[in-house]
């Protein structure tokens, strides 16, 4: 094969993206978990470790740009590298949601508000499962697998709506907890956005294989707006 250098570099970057994905998965699971344990030291650690993910993202971006410049890829290679550039960006933003949750956790601090830990964990587990499979589909360049994932976003959205209504209800009956209720809503929002971004990764997988850029969102923010 005349393109062994490019191919081996591409595989290397794909593996690194998979690794970055695992770090993001771990971060969001840990952040949600500390909501339950209320371990603020742990939350601080998660908050700070986001820089490791950021650095890894920059390193990957750099590697991709170098490949673009030195290998001058066309067609599928070009689409793959362009998609990788976006996917590492998505992963970094997803990690920011974990960081955000950790930050809110610290902010809530010793307050005795009732956190819907169970639902948050469900949201996080569902999102992580989606992310994990979407990255597998991305690396295997499997458009069918990628196309099936965005529908599952509904589960996360339902949980979000449930938490949203419950929290609003809680805030109305306990106006003194308005601040903390707002924090809870932000956590739910972060988890919901986290899952939304999985859809973008799936879109890129389909772009690599078919060359088509298309919107895949099942029922997105617009439908959510009707709830307000």
């Amino acid at each position: 094969m005349p393109r062994e250098t490019l191919d081996s570099k591409l595989t290397q970057i794909q593996n690194e993206i998979y690794l970055l994905g695992s770090m993001v998965e771990q971060a969001i699971l840990d952040a949600t978990n500390t909501l339950k344990t209320r371990d603020l030291k742990e939350a601080k650690r998660i908050f700070e470790e986001d820089t490791v993910i950021n650095e890894k993202r920059f390193a990957l971006e750099n590697a991709i740009i170098i490949l673009l410049a030195t290998q001058q890829p066309f067609a599928r290679d070009l689409r793959l590298l362009a998609a990788m550039l976006l996917v590492v960006n998505e992963l970094e933003r997803m990690a920011d949601y974990a960081k955000g949750i950790a930050k809110i956790n610290i902010k809530i601090g010793k307050s005795d508000i009732d956190i819907p830990v169970r639902d948050f964990q469900k949201m996080a587990e569902q999102s992580v499962s989606m992310l994990h499979r979407s990255l597998s589909a991305f690396i295997e360049q499997n458009p069918n697998q990628a196309a099936a994932i965005p529908q599952e976003d509904d589960i996360v959205d339902e949980l979000y709506t449930k938490i949203y209504h419950a929290t609003i209800q809680y805030a109305i009956t306990n106006p003194s907890y308005m601040d903390q209720a707002n924090d809870i809503l932000w956590i739910a929002h972060n988890l919901e956005r986290f899952a939304d971004r999985v859809t973008n990764i799936c879109e890129r997988t389909i772009f690599i294989t078919t060359g088509e850029l298309m919107e895949m969102s099942s029922n997105d923010d617009e439908t959510d707006l009707s709830d307000f």
Partner: peptide, 17 residues
Amino acid sequence: FTNPHEKITEDYISGRF
């Protein structure tokens, strides 16, 4: 150059011919 329809074109322009 971004999305050729034919596999042969794809292979040729991405240097895998």
